[in-house]
Design a binder for these strands. Sequence first.
DNA 1: GTGAAAGCGCTAACAT
DNA 2: ATGTTAGCGCTTTCAC
Lengths: 411, 411
Amino acid sequence: MGSASRVVNGHPGVRPEIRERVRTAARELGYRPDPLAQGLRARRSRLVTLVVPDITNPFFAELARELELDCAARGYQLVLRNSMESPATEYDALLSALDHRPSGIVVVPTAGTTALPATGDVPLVVCDRRLPGGAAPTVVSDNRQGASAATAYLMGLGHRRIACLAGPPGVHAADERLAGYLALTGGTPEGHGPVVRGPFDYATGQRAARELLDLDRPPTAILAGSDQQAIGVLHACLNRGLRVPDDISVCGFDAIALSALTSPALTTVRQPVRRIAARAMEFLLGPRPPDPAGFPAPAGADDCAGAGDSVGARDSAGARGSTGARDSTGAADSAGASDSAGARDSTVAGSSTRAADPSAPHSDVRNAPAPHPAEPDADLPHPAAPVLVSLPTELVVRASCAPPPEGTRTP
Amino acid sequence: MGSASRVVNGHPGVRPEIRERVRTAARELGYRPDPLAQGLRARRSRLVTLVVPDITNPFFAELARELELDCAARGYQLVLRNSMESPATEYDALLSALDHRPSGIVVVPTAGTTALPATGDVPLVVCDRRLPGGAAPTVVSDNRQGASAATAYLMGLGHRRIACLAGPPGVHAADERLAGYLALTGGTPEGHGPVVRGPFDYATGQRAARELLDLDRPPTAILAGSDQQAIGVLHACLNRGLRVPDDISVCGFDAIALSALTSPALTTVRQPVRRIAARAMEFLLGPRPPDPAGFPAPAGADDCAGAGDSVGARDSAGARGSTGARDSTGAADSAGASDSAGARDSTVAGSSTRAADPSAPHSDVRNAPAPHPAEPDADLPHPAAPVLVSLPTELVVRASCAPPPEGTRTP
DNA sequence: GTGAAAGCGCTAACAT
DNA sequence: ATGTTAGCGCTTTCAC
């Protein structure tokens, strides 16, 4: 029975003969490991908890989907929690999530979150937004760079009065986007255009647009802080009888599905949701096919047959041995992290290399304001885990932006 | 220690003194029950699994949120799974969900789903869509009635050429909505207008609208199968230079948040998402405050004090005893179910009365290798459980519909 | 490398 | 009504 367990968990050091015998028996008996018992004993359930402010936000929904798909592929289950933008609710959600001893936690903190509960040895990663003090490992997209790219695009089109509708103060993504905008417009002879801030929602977009349009010299372009805002802006403009992009340009942020389907289609900045999800999961669970077992991961007893049959040789290397079986990831991703460096000093992190053991690398990453100020040494198992990963965004040029009405001016 | 368990689980028959003692100790020790151990022993985890085609669909996101909120309030966690409209994926998701011995399963089946796996003694409820053969307990909104209401409204406005953009064939909600439309227009002297079918998404709306607008005698109103479709229609019309609602009326379905924020705001049919969620949860877990414990449900050790104290009497009737403690629900909701009967024979269910024991009523609903071929005996727990609950929808009149351009004709 | 034994933290039958 | 006793199904030392 000990050996059975070893086989199921893909532990090395089991004679091939025995392993096959166990596998066959398992298959014939239709054996399915009991996650509860496993969890109780191993003090770790195959659950990943996601805490978002509100799953109804299309961006979070997309994130949730990507995470869930990734979980499913690895044989994990995604637990969903809504904090409803309440730090207290978020805190409670985290606490009760912890009770279930999840394999990892992904949280998109509320605007008011200052600290997260101690997670013990449960790895946690912050997504999309940042916590003050960078108190936890974080993966975000490079909002500043994205906003700058959009601003540059607008300026290149000839716009000189570009308004910025930014998200709520204190929300990292909002602040960063604003910073990206200011970085380019601030140095301009005309100075930067009007700035309005507010929640990332449709209503705010409408309200802000009306406000902006009522100005003495209304802007010729509006850079919104989210697609939802941008759509609100779009509608407000349209309602005012303005043509977009002929009379005014509008640019969004996020590239949610809907943004492609407005009229005109929204020029926007794409957040690499899929990559964000992938990086987060990688951080929590290790590189993609941890293949933690010869077969328990795949759900149906069916498909494991196909896969399991010829697998015998596969894990000769030991899917999760103590050696650098997983550095493939490290290499690829350090690249991903650094190529976002196009934007200034901001973000970007202590690059790639992660220790091999999935249980170890996180413990020190948490709370810990920088475990070691500097890590000169570096071979394989050094405890230097990236604290902040910033993924590059992508400008999606569609139809909602054009040169300003009066005529383009080439600088 | 036995008593401790009894207290924690709110079992009756514990002397108040002891109970207090246990509670105090628990509080001081910061005791938190281990859900894994509880689950292993009780063969039931405090998890509820939700399987949706795609959480990215705003309607499902809303459903998920409501369910999650309800779960959280009861001390449960919501596991999210995306079937991506693939019956096979859905099946696997259910299978692996079952491994965790959830307290219940909510599934929005894919269009191609014909059967669900046997869930053993795990209660399962189908939401929003229906399974062929009504093989499982179901709670949906009365789509037919909703579509009829919208159609009637349009006809009342004077429209005679109303097109219907319906969802994909085979999807129950889509079929029902179409039926609701046909029921009113079919008998009309002019007969019903053109019908187009396709996925519930934005793109389909745009495509269909263009198609419809190219007709020799284009419709004066379009009844869409979803808000997403309707928004696509809206954009397509606007792009064609048509004014909505002056030149053409558009009506949506679902009343997602976005529908209020388009310009013009969408007239649509509201699905009682919150009630759907509430009913589903009630079906799975019993009436709202099952308060399965004096305090483990509330997350923080803080709030448990307030609630737990005076609870003592609550469960005198036994929140989930073998008697009809839950027909309060049945009464209220059977009403809800039947007043939707305004639309013909359709939906509506074997009204209210449900068996009291949560473990029993479901077993027979499934195909199930039936433990006992027949269970003649029946006192309160008669196996007559409602198989279908249909909740009434609500027409939300906003700005996207108006009398047809040529002039209204009063019948 | 492989069995055997000892529990993970809790609940449900038991005896009291 | 309370204390005691078995395990739930698995992982993990620990001897072999």
